[in-house]
């Protein structure tokens, strides 16, 4: 029983490794992601200044490549005279936190619903499918806005709201993957020898859907980060003085026509992060299941 064959990840490890190394998108993606994660972890060591320290006499100083700029503030200062580079470095923490937090919450909800529906079928499946349909019928951005407008934005609220809204893709994919696995011989066998449902779910089903789970999770991390930027644009993102990249973009927005670097610097960071998380997710799908590239 313990030696039941594994079906989905039967790829030889060496082949996997070489495929990863040959996959350019994935290499670029993972390099940037690792870089941003390092920035976030080591922020206090790297940041040249305190990201919260204001200096009202030195507001909106341009970055070093501008003739008016200086090495003191490599990326300039924001509208309250805070060092832009330091805020960018600390901002990586908040943006990652939002992405990972929201993906975690929606992942738990979506996986739970999806696996239940796929494994038990029947009524459970009906209810879950119904929930998914309801969820898809609601305009996400609108609902997120309405909720945040009511309770006031904060890091927890933003993560919570996005987490509660983005579970649909998890549920859909987990449901169909579980459906596939349920009919596999080894699951039937496990059931035949009398394994408990929990045990089957944890030891037989989950390990086999985890690949898909990770792929969806990366896409949803990217999605949550972008949505937070949109919320910030409408004035409903995280609360200042927390420096999320989305908030930095929206704070720089007013001066966009005059000091475009205020929006370009965090905008490019945001773009690179979301892009690389996406590339990483796509790459993982290609590498683990090359026949499924779409």
């Amino acid at each position: 029983m313990t030696n039941l064959p594994q079906t989905t990840s039967t790829l030889p490890v060496s082949g996997l490794k070489s495929r990863v190394l040959r996959h350019k998108g994935m290499m670029i993606g993972s390099t940037i992601v690792v870089f941003v994660v390092l920035l976030a972890l080591l922020a206090p060591l790297i940041a040249p200044h305190d990201p919260y320290q204001q200096d009202l006499l030195n507001r909106l100083k341009p970055p070093v490549w501008d003739p008016r700029g200086s090495w003191e503030h490599i990326f300039g200062t924001d509208h309250l005279g805070r060092d832009y580079l330091s805020r960018l470095i600390y901002g990586s923490r908040i943006s990652l936190l939002i992405g990972i937090g929201a993906a975690l919450i929606s992942g738990v909800i979506g996986t739970f619903l999806g696996v239940m529906a796929g494994y038990f079928g029947g009524r459970v499946d009906m209810v879950v499918t119904f929930l998914i349909t309801v969820r898809l019928s609601m305009p996400v951005v609108l609902v997120a806005l309405a909720v945040v407008a009511i309770v006031g934005g904060s890091l927890q609220v933003v993560i919570g709201v996005l987490g509660l809204l983005l579970w649909d893709r998890f549920a859909v994919v987990m449901r169909s993957s579980t459906l596939q696995i349920r009919s596999m011989d080894y699951v039937t066998a496990a059931r035949a020898v009398g394994c408990s449902t929990t045990r089957i779910l944890m030891t037989e089903v989950m390990p086999n859907v985890v690949n898909n789970l990770i792929v969806i999770a990366t896409l949803e991390i990217a999605h949550a980060i972008i949505l937070e930027a949109a919320l910030s644009f409408l004035g409903l993102g995280v609360q200042p003085p927390l420096p999320s990249w989305g908030l930095m973009v929206s704070e720089g927005k007013d001066m966009m026509l005059f000091e475009p670097w205020l929006i370009t610097i965090p905008g490019v960071a945001l773009f690179a992060l979301v892009l690389s998380v996406n590339l990483l997710g796509d790459g993982m799908r290609d590498v683990t299941a090359p026949e499924n590239r779409n």
Binding site: K253, N278, L279
Partner: peptide
């Protein structure tokens, strides 16, 4: 095509819109 599509997922829409306006 891949590049364009991945970019579509990573560029905040308001930024893109404002760039077009400028």
């Amino acid at each position: 095509a891949l590049f364009l599509s991945v970019m579509g997922q990573a560029l905040p829409s308001f930024w893109f819109a404002l760039i077009l306006i400028v």
